[in-house]
Amino acid sequence: MQKIRAPFVFDESLNASFLAELFDGDTLYAETVFEDFLKDLPVYWQRVEAAYDSKNLPVLGTSVHTCKTLFGYVGFTDLQELCQQFENKCSVNSADELRVDYIILIQRKEKAQHVIEKEYARLRQFNESNG
C-alpha cells in the first residue's frame, strides 16, 4: 500500500497560506529558497548596518527595502510591513529619530532569522524523509 505523504506545515509565525501558494507543494524548492535566504540576508543586512552607522538614510532606506523583499519570499509578510514603515521614515526622519525603530527592526530580523533557520532544518528533514 502506498504511504500517503503528509504536507509540510510552515511555522505559524509565517504566512502559511501564502507560502503554500508560492511553493505549490514544492518543498525541495522551498528548502533551496530558505537556504538562499539564510545565505543572502547577512550580506544585505551588512549594508543596512553600514548605512545606519554612517547615517546615510537614502541608502539605509534602499537597503531595508531589499531586505523587505527578501522577507516576503519566506513568508514574513508582517515583517515586510515593518520594513516598509521604516523605509518610509528614512525619507522624513533623522538617524537619531530612527534609533528606536532601528532597534526594533534588528530584534525582529534576528527573531525572523532564527525562525527560518529552524524551518530550513525542518524542510531538509522533511525532504530527506520523503526521499
Binding site: 538562499d36 531589499t66 527578501l70 519570499y73
Partner: peptide, 12 residues
C-alpha cells in the same frame, strides 16, 4: 533584478 531569490523565482 538585483535580488537573486526574486530572479530565481521568476526564471522558474
Amino acid at each position: 533584478e538585483d535580488i537573486q531569490i526574486a530572479a530565481d523565482f521568476l526564471r522558474k
